[in-house]
Amino acid sequence: MSSADAISRRSGISGLTANIPWLLVPGLLFIFFVFGWPLLYLLRMSFNDHPGATVYVEAWTLRNYVFVLTDPGMLTEIAKTVYLSVVTAVVTVTAAFFFAQFVWLREGSARLIFLAIALGPMLISEVSVIIGWRMFFPSNGLLSYAMTSTGLSGQKINLLSTELAAVVGLSYISVSYCFFSILSVLNGIDRGLLTASADLGASPVRTFFTVLLPLAKGGIAAAFTQAFVFTMGIYATTNALGPDSLWTVPYEIQLQMLTRRNWPMAAALSIVLIVIIAAAALVTQWLRHRKGSRHV
């Protein structure tokens, strides 16, 4: 390559590099108008007042936040939402991790079949998931029929409108996303490390806790927050499968917005929910940078 060609090539690369910030402008504008502007409007709405006659009147008041953060009923709903999200995240990540580990150790067509199975829940809408589990959990549903037919239960059982049903439904929605997050980390791990650990005399249990689990912590943290965020924002599944006493923040938001027509209160609840989710995301980012984030 001649010196003139080299100079021309460097000049072209420099010109492209100089234009990169301008190439980002359309994407940044799209993000701002689609996500940033509605979020700013939501934040502004949370400081408005609700006199009762109209959905809101413009004001600058902290009354909504004070009520959300001090009212016992609201605090109970926040605590229930966080509790349900944590339990669901633990169940989902546990199931996703062991299934991801199983698929990670497979080869060839078997691996492709299991990957296709893992994609299944992602292709089903939330409404279909709710209908399916509502046909599975009641006393005349598939689970009760299977238990009585096999003799495992002497009478019909009804698990619909229980916290167990809500957790199962919520886990089903987010398990595929958690599975692929964890599998992406496992794919970056050398399987020879497991073999080396066994050759050095470590038991499978010790190899799991001292070799595999530490290397997969980044993916587990990402999957946990993913399931946590999904559960924090869903109310239809919880409302349809869980008990009537299981009031969550998303359900309260739609109640304030659509039924009570209290938009400022709904906005304040939404901001509180966003702050909790953002805190969880920040913790996940810290864990990912601290523990093998390059694989996620």
Rank of each mutant, 00 (worst) to 15 (best):
M147R: 10
G192M: 00
K156R: 13
V175A: 11
L164G: 07
Y145I: 06
G188T: 01
G192S: 05
D190F: 01
A146L: 09
V185Y: 15
L142A: 06
S153Q: 13
D190Q: 09
V175K: 08
L143H: 12
L170G: 04
L143P: 15
K156M: 10
A196N: 01
A198E: 13
G192A: 03
G188H: 07
L193G: 06
G154M: 11
Y145Q: 10
L170C: 03
D190Y: 02
Y177V: 02
S197F: 03
A165C: 13
A146C: 06
F179I: 01
Y172I: 15
A166K: 14
S144T: 14
L152M: 13
E163W: 05
S181W: 05
L160S: 06
S171N: 15
S144P: 09
L183W: 07
S149P: 15
Q155E: 13
A196R: 01
R191C: 08
G151P: 13
V185S: 15
V175E: 05
C178D: 06
S176Y: 03
C178R: 07
T150E: 13
T150S: 14
L160R: 01
T162L: 11
M147N: 11
L142R: 01
V185N: 15
C178H: 05
G188E: 05
S153I: 11
S153T: 14
G169W: 03
G192I: 00
